[in-house]
Design a protein around this nucleic acid. Structure first.
Lengths: 340, 340
DNA sequence: ATGAAAGCGCTAACAG
DNA sequence: CTGTTAGCGCTTTCAT
């Protein structure tokens, strides 16, 4: 109980305290190999009494195995990624693996740096958001020799495996649904899509889908920073002032859409009769608004689960490299997309 | 560029490729000690060409130093913790340290497990949410010999340092403000506070504060699970049906408060004239609601920053152990707390 | 069922 | 400025 020195305990301490060789102590602590019940108990008792915590650094170096999976995502405040994480955790919890998160803030150089840090810990696998990475990052991933799963997006070529949805298709499908519902004068409101490739692809797919129906976007507005709900409100106000004839507002995410919806309700617009509205993501958080915003589920938790499963399977040897899984998001018309 | 074998590269590979000793390669890669510009460039070139990524496991074992800070929090989907994280990152980015997150889901046993895993990587410090931990967890933290900062809460005794607010006091202050504004018939709506000690302390402080004014809570309702916004709506409806005479609704967090507020607005209640409302946390996300919910800033980002700073300072030797920092949350009356 | 020896890839501490 | 020698704390491998 008393341990005046500050040196962390080692296997040797447990070995001496229990009178059992280091090797056998190690076996007991890892449940490996045959150890008699008697010595096992002696060891466990000693370890617990001392408060021994094994040193994974030494263990990993010796065994050349690290039960860590690097998860590299842009942000935690986005609502989207915590749900992906929860899918990943759900699956990894059934294994020996542990997720370790690195954040990129949507910046390629930061991604490169974080990836380098992560790989220097020799993780057993990498789950990384997006298909766009700079050359250095791609080289590292390819050279790492470990399973890599790129997630969220399937519009592109993965380094190894990928799990996601086609954002281009998601945009197209939403355009199709909007046109089918009879809307024609359409405004787009989105985040400034400089570095958010998936938002950009959705936007491209959307205009493409409209074009097929002979329709062009009538107005658009982009924002960056600030509270999404408030921004949605402001942008909607600005756009409806500028283009009062719009009959549909498509938002690049549910939060700004919700802000817009609240404003429209306040102003007494007939939604979805006169003006339809839709967002993107299927954010559960927003259930509870006066009207349910039409949206499209982005399959976040499932993406996390499938990605984690790919890594887990690869490590047990059951899995194949180069898997490409495209999930199919479904449109939820909510109360803001008129039904035909 | 070609590397048929799958064995990761080592310092030795770089050493051989550059014709410089391993030790000097190591010096170059870590910017330690004096190395001539000529050899430095030779080494850097070789390392880059091979795509060498150092093995931190070996480095950590040899140097007995790990630039990792464990951050142990209940959840990432809570809105509160991502902001704490962002404060932590902001400070650690100015240092060599890297945060590593572990999630407990508010479960003490899981906290113990996660902590054990974390400590087994011998991090340089621990930042952990809350002051309540089971015996094993406390023993590990105390025995770890590294700086420990418990965050969020200051109502209790820390193992080492703590940074947070007094939730008991926060509840009391809100009670005082509500009474001062003239409200008397008060309902409380909160999350089921089984394992959320901070919510519990706020509740206790709140009833205590009311008691000082001779007032007792008239009705209360607790929820668990589901979408907070929707729950707030449902709970508010239920409570107002049951206790139509209430003139104030205090919510244990902003999200359920927002749901309640939306419902009240829809039903045409005069807020804050007839009924006042308040939440807790100062969630920025919610700016953009029709009315701004009264709330109390929980200083999340600052807590993260201060905690990270304590760890960083301890490691450079400038800092002291046992720091106790209590921040003072301020009430934001928004539009739902009548001003006197 | 248990132990002894060797070494994982790197860095600290010395030499030169 | 550069190199050599010993480990870091554990696990692998091979004996017993």
């Amino acid at each position: 109980m008393t341990r005046p020195e500050t040196r962390p305990l080692t296997l040797r301490d447990v070995s001496e305290a229990s009178g059992v060789s280091e090797m056998t102590v190690s076996r007991v602590l890892r449940n490996r190999g045959d150890v008699s019940e008697a010595t096992r108990e002696k060891v466990l008792l000693a370890a617990k009494r001392l408060g021994y915590v094994p040193n994974k650094i030494a263990g990993a170096l010796a065994s050349q195995r690290v039960n860590l999976v690097s998860v590299i995502i842009p942000s935690m405040t986005n609502l989207v990624f915590p749900e992906v994480m929860s899918g990943i955790s759900k699956v990894l919890e059934t294994t020996e693996l542990q997720p370790v998160v690195g954040l990129t803030d949507y910046l390629p150089e930061k991604e490169e740096k974080v990836l380098y840090e992560m790989l220097s810990w020799r993780p057993s696998g990498v789950i990384i958001a997006g298909l766009e990475h700079n050359d250095a990052a791609r080289a590292m991933l390819r050279g790492s020799g470990i399973p890599v799963v790129e997630i969220m997006d399937t519009d592109g070529t993965p380094i190894d495996s990928m799990v996601g949805i086609s954002h281009r298709r998601a945009g197209r499908e939403m355009a199709k649904a909007i046109l089918a519902a009879g809307y024609r004068r359409i405004g787009f409101l989105g985040s400034a899509i400089g570095l958010d490739h998936r938002a950009r692809k959705r936007f491209e797919g959307f205009t493409e889908g409209l074009a097929k129906g002979g329709v062009e976007i009538e107005d658009h507005e982009f924002y960056s920073g600030g509270s999404a709900l408030a921004k949605g409100r402001e942008m909607t106000e600005a756009m409806m002032a500028r283009s009062p004839d719009l009959d549909f507002l498509y938002y690049s995410n549910d939060l700004i859409g919700a802000g817009g919806l609240l404003w429209m309700i306040e102003k007494g617009y007939d939604v979805p009769g006169k003006v339809g509205m839709a967002g993107f993501n299927g954010v559960r958080l927003l259930k509870g608004l006066p009207q349910r915003l039409a949206t499209m589920d982005s399959c976040r938790e499932e993406i996390g689960m499938r990605a984690a499963q790919i890594i887990a399977d690869r490590l047990t040897g059951e899995g194949e490299a180069g898997q490409k899984i495209e999930l199919t998001p479904t449109i939820d018309p909510g109360d803001t997309l008129r039904q035909v």
